[in-house]
Design a protein around this nucleic acid. Structure first.
Lengths: 194, 194
DNA sequence: GTCTATACTGTGATAGAC
DNA sequence: GTCTATCACAGTATAGAC
């Protein structure tokens, strides 16, 4: 085994953890599986991380950081096409890396019941709502309109839409239906502008 | 230990499993925990169930059977208020038994990665979509309107809405925001009628 | 037909050799 | 700073006593 600095090891283990969770499911995410995937001996784990929880926290943070960025989306001339563009851009990130969302959902679900991890789920959703809100503000500015509902409520609706569509897709993998639903939601949400 | 018939034991164990999953999370749902909760010795478990998977399958079925029934909802005079009534009725079932949805979500999540259980998640979502579709048809009939989008797409949107709103609520427990979002969704979906 | 005792595997974590 | 060996415990499952 080559001598590798601990920070590098941490990175390797987090990446290995992501691959294991994506491939074999959250239930298979054990310290042993992670070390095996990283090609490292088991005891490396507790040298690099104080606990499994610490790994999960870092895994969540790292997976979130690769999140969809609405400011890079090319918006259309009107609200409806801009909303479609944003939701389609989200969807293309899901399709490009189809493992990310299931892993994030499992992490959220787990964090909700784990005494030291609730804050992770809460911060995760705050980030989602911030992202949605930023997209909505960008659209209002670009298309020179104002929203007729409070932004926090619209942001919650957008997050619910993406989560709900993604969840159904995880079950039946019907990509066409998912995209249709997102487009229709874009149309309906666009009605809330003046 | 009193002698109890096996079918009765099965029922006790499934109920105990629900309580454990609801209280301590899906990760704590072990055969030991279930038997302890049911006040039964550990080995009872594999006398009543061939495997843990069998318990999970029955737990899913039983939890699903207590699902929301849209045909019992009092619809309003127009589409908008009827949709609100349906979504609010769903929401009140979530609020009345706040443990059910988290347990069902965890079961879905788990089933997706478990070789013998995928069909459970698929059937679960088929049931959701059937329920949503029935509600939409009932509204169309009662309010004498027709939907301007295909029913399967609208049903998918309704399921996405309830799932998405519920998921966000599980994280931040903001009931007021959840209800507002559902009402707004009812308004937007009502626009898809002639 | 019902339940007791126990087997065996896999888990996160640690002490201490290199 | 790295890794071997091992711990204590929780996991599912089973053989056989009542």
């Amino acid at each position: 085994m080559p001598r590798v600095p601990a920070t590098e090891r941490r990175r390797q283990l987090v990446e290995a953890a992501f691959r294991v969770a994506a491939r074999d499911g959250f239930g298979a995410l054990t310290t042993r599986a992670v070390c095996a995937e990283a090609g490292a001996p088991l005891a490396i784990f507790h040298y690099c991380f104080a606990s499994k929880q610490e790994l999960l926290a870092e895994l969540t943070e790292q997976t979130m950081s690769a999140l969809f960025d609405p400011s890079r989306v090319e918006l259309g001339p009107d609200v409806r096409s801009s909303l479609r563009a944003v939701l389609r851009a989200y969807w293309s990130t899901v399709q490009e890396e189809p493992q990310r969302e299931p892993v994030l959902m499992a992490l959220t679900q787990h964090a909700l019941h784990e005494p030291g991890l609730e804050q992770i789920a809460v911060r995760q959703y705050e980030a989602y709502h911030r992202t949605a809100r930023a997209a909505l503000e960008l659209i209002a500015e670009t298309c020179a309109v104002t929203w007729t509902l409070p932004l926090p409520r619209l942001a919650r609706m957008m997050v619910a839409v993406t989560d709900g569509v993604t969840l159904a897709w995880l079950v039946d993998r019907d990509s066409a239906a998912a995209l249709e639903a997102l487009d229709s939601f874009a149309d309906t949400l666009a009605a809330h502008t003046l």
